[in-house]
Design a protein around this nucleic acid. Structure first.
Lengths: 333, 333
DNA sequence: CAAAAATAAGTAAACGTTTTCTATCCTTCA
DNA sequence: TGAAGGATAGAAAACGTTTACTTATTTTTG
């Protein structure tokens, strides 16, 4: 690897001048500039970003900590963040916590040591230990899709309660009264918000929610398969299922097919997230769309603003969801 | 952020001693060590990895360049690499080239400037410009799932020809003779290998491949939907389709359902990759599994070995695939 | 025409570590 | 008792940049 002093020597100038040519940070005569550029070209010089970062105090690198990037929803979020970051000159270090608080914590330390300029954080749970450590290091932090209550931190999430309402009402409007709900892991605010919306909306419609029809999955397809098999074997099976994410909704559809039930004929299914593949399930999945682009854009904006000014007061953004009507609940309109 | 000299001052020792305590790199008396550790604890010291990397000449960071991490197949690969890397003390900078050679090239430069210790490379195509640049910088490089012919570089891929044979034979064995193939983007060796295997296997079975039944998709579901619609509207529709990846196979199933064809009754479908969601399509997808774990493990091993010894001769690994029989081709056995 | 101002570029400190080289203090033993 | 050697730890250079400060030269101006 060639170094700046080699460029300087070859061009017959000081390293300061080379640096100024590279960064356009003070006037350099045309003639000198040309010589420097020629020299850089000749030896294929590339500035060492480590040295630059050490000196400048910024790495142009952001961390993303999330539970599992092979989950399509997180994959899409991660990809969105990466794209926007790239356009702003940042790279992304991707950290899968594997839903393990210990790994999450270790990664937080690694990122902090590597001096990333900020971290997008999707916690495995909502215990704030890791978060607080990070905040103590005074690292720009944007929490996504998690709710750490009154911790003072920039937060971006979608309106899960409103989304849950949308889903439930959609099922109700289609005439269903025996509706099951497969929730996500407990301990996540977004889970309880979706379920609370489900119950409240049912109540508002004069239907008492049946607790035996509200079951806990883990946001993966397999868990929803198993739960659906149980549900459909009951003497009083539900006619509709609200799965609290798309992966589980796909699991529901799969299990229903396995038992010979037709979707939406025998069983309506609605999901949550609007992952890309939901558009290609059989039948195509009706779902509550989390406004992915907006989530990602807002998170990125918060991040850039906070990097620019650490003293900004924390902001919280709750973005409304919208219904994507496809086939898995039948056609209403 | 606290610095090593603050620890040293607090503990009443030199910064050299602190460094040696941190890295266990020379004997330090128990008493001194305790003092240093206490001091680190007290001020919450964390070593600055930039400074360390600059001095040591290694960043414990690897780059991954791939076309699109929101494609489930790449997401799973990326996640696998990240997991193994983490266990070896490395972090991953994730770079989506968005299938754009220009972005790919820019990212290669960024990674090189950031002094990553190596790069896992899944090119957008197989033109070797970016690759050669990277090799010129003498960066440890492992090419995955792409074939750059005689470029001297570590390469890990699955046996696409063998996989294509497996898929075609499976369809043949089920009695199909009118078989279509939806291939991936041209210009990718893996595409042509899979298709060549398809043709060869058909020929070997005494069936002349019908070129009008070999169509080009783009590895995304939508393209396969469109192609399948065309295919099934023909007067002589195929009774089976070999989709060259799972995403397209899912698109095929979706389009078939849309036209009221039953899978596998009216149309058998086989995919390639074995992505997780293939296990939850309706019907569950029969597919050729790329040995993801083995690909990722081999790639990681190559990487670590090359980092340890830059002079190693380049190695190429071709890993056999295996058939995962589920439901989309009917039950044979 | 001398002094002030403007122009162009060089010198060296700083970023926060690691690591080589060196120093001090004890023991030990001839 | 004095030199050798072991045990412990400090001083300073090095990693490759950026940038504040300084200098040399030329131009402008009163």
């Amino acid at each position: 690897m060639s170094k700046i002093h080699q460029v300087a020597a070859l061009a017959g100038v000081s390293i300061a001048t080379v640096s100024h040519v590279i960064n356009n940070t003070r006037f350099v005569s045309d003639e000198t500039r040309k010589r420097v550029q020629a020299a850089m070209e000749e030896i294929g010089y590339q500035p060492n970003a480590l040295a630059r970062s050490l000196r400048r105090g910024e790495t142009k690198t952001l961390g993303v900590i999330l539970p599992d990037s092979s989950n399509p929803y997180f994959a899409e979020i991660g990809r969105g963040l990466e794209l926007l970051a790239f356009n702003e000159g940042y790279s992304i270090i991707l950290c899968n916590s594997e839903n393990d608080a210990e790994i999450e914590h270790q990664y937080a330390e690694v990122l902090s040591k590597k001096q990333v300029d900020g971290i997008f954080f999707v916690g495995t749970g909502e215990r704030p230990e890791t978060l607080l450590t990070l905040l103590k290091h005074n690292l720009p932090l944007v929490v996504m899709m998690r709710d750490f209550g009154d911790v003072q931190v920039d937060t971006v999430q979608s309106d899960n309660y409103q989304g849950g309402t949308l889903a439930t009402r959609h099922l109700l409007d289609a005439g269903h009264t025996r509706i099951a709900c497969i929730m996500g892991p407990s301990g996540l605010t977004l889970s309880s918000q979706r379920v609370n919306a489900f119950k409240d909306t049912l109540n508002a419609a004069g239907i008492t929610p049946d607790d035996s029809m509200i079951l806990q999955g883990d946001f993966h397809a397999e868990s929803a398969c198993a739960i659906t098999r149980q549900l459909l074997k009951r003497p009083d099976p539900p006619t509709a299922i609200f799965a609290c994410n798309d992966l589980m909704a796909i699991g529901v559809i799969c299990a229903a097919a396995e038992l010979g039930r037709r979707v939406p004929g025998d069983l309506a299914v609605i999901g949550f997230d609007n992952i890309q593949l939901g558009n290609f399930s059989v039948p195509r999945l009706t779902t509550v769309a989390q406004p992915k682009d907006e989530l990602v854009q807002t998170a990125t904006r918060y991040m850039l603003e906070r990097i620019a000014d650490h003293t900004l007061p924390p902001r919280k953004s709750v973005i409304p969801t919208n219904l994507v009507i496809r086939q898995s609940c039948g056609h209403l309109v």
